[in-house]
Design a binder for these strands. Structure first.
Lengths: 201, 201
DNA sequence: GCTCAAACTGGCCGACCGGTCAAACCACGG
DNA sequence: CCGTGGTTTGACCGGTCGGCCAGTTTGAGC
């Protein structure tokens, strides 16, 4: 589909086709295991054109990461727009979970970058992190969640409960959904997080 | 150190040096991004000798994975030896956390294999998983932890709480230990897990 | 219709990849 | 003391890698 559509001298369409094909391959096999020839073949253009538009394999990868992370950053910002209440805290886990379910590229991209020690887009991630910490601090001050542990730990646990599902799901893509219906998991994770973070009586 | 020590015609020492050097490089940069020449250089032998001992790059990687996973499997089995009580449940999180802290190779190896869809050693992992599920089921039946969610979910949350620390730590190896002292985190994660899993009154 | 810059192509490059091979080396049993 | 077989080496292979370049095609502006 993304392949050689009737597209000639339409640089924007070419760039998009290359970006899409390259992202798919990079996220599926990893940066080092993907060759420029494969990207060229999948996107329906020549290797030379990729270099014409993006300069090098690394620059292409950078642009892909930048594109995905800005979208990720924007989506998460919306999550912080809502007011602060017990309901929104509970809903935020479901929202984040749903987002990862709908954007599996984000999960894999962060996974590769973590292992490769890639700090690109660290600015965006740090910003989101800081906002999350601030929100948790406010919720603690408001007595909505327990305040006997630092916000950093609360944030880590929140993320850990959500990510756990995707870590496991990565291994059972072969249709084995036994006991791993996403809706059921996120409901229980919400319950567990709520119980874990209830302020001490 | 592991490099060309005074080792001549000592095949066992050669094999060990190659395995160690290759594991370090594979886990640091990934399988695809590591070349046989680099492994040869770091281990202080020639490329040809690596092929003589291990046949191919893939076989070498397999042997490394097998070696690490059998050790991992054995360590985790010991964790299941203890009896079942509220104390052992609490301690098991600290023990698992400590193990990953002492064996960072396991964290990175599982990370690479997850992304690459590598199912090698799935037998060992499935065995550990099954034992964990059985233990959780028993604890639920004994009324030690809540029984209103399936053992699969409880296991995922347990792992998620622990792994969250290492996911984050992977990004801040540059000395920034702000708010991420491992002992403090695992203590809070224990508290949170206990509160989350307490049987409903 | 001509011009010109951008989009695009095929062919090529040196470097390096994983892997092979024949020969040298060396400990050991006879 | 001499083979003999596993260990080790350096030279070498075809193939692929990322990248480059000279040249062709194309569409917009004059």
């Amino acid at each position: 589909m993304s392949a050689q559509a009737a597209r000639k001298h339409d640089p924007e369409a070419s760039r998009a086709a290359i970006l899409d094909a390259a992202e798919g391959l990079f996220l599926e096999r990893g940066f080092a295991a993907t060759s420029m020839s494969e990207i060229a073949e999948r996107s329906g253009v020549t290797k030379s054109l990729i270099h014409h538009h993006f300069g090098s394999k690394e620059s292409l990868w950078s642009e892909i990461k930048r594109r995905r992370f800005t979208s990720y950053h924007a989506s998460q910002l919306a999550l912080y727009e809502r007011g602060l209440s017990a309901d929104t805290i509970r809903a935020s886990m479901a929202t984040y979970f749903r987002f990862l379910l709908d954007n599996p590229q984000v999960v894999r991209m962060i996974g590769w970058m973590r292992l490769e020690g890639d700090l690109e887009c660290a600015d965006l991630v740090c910003d989101l992190r800081a906002r999350g910490l601030q929100l948790i601090g406010t919720a603690q001050a408001a007595g909505l969640i327990r305040n006997d542990m630092p916000p950093e730990h609360v944030l880590l646990m929140f993320l850990g409960l959500v990510n756990a599902y995707f870590d496991e799901a990565a291994f059972v893509t072969d249709g084995n959904a036994a006991g791993l219906e996403p809706e059921a998991y996120v409901a229980n994770a919400q319950k567990a997080f709520e119980a874990a973070m209830r302020p001490a009586p």
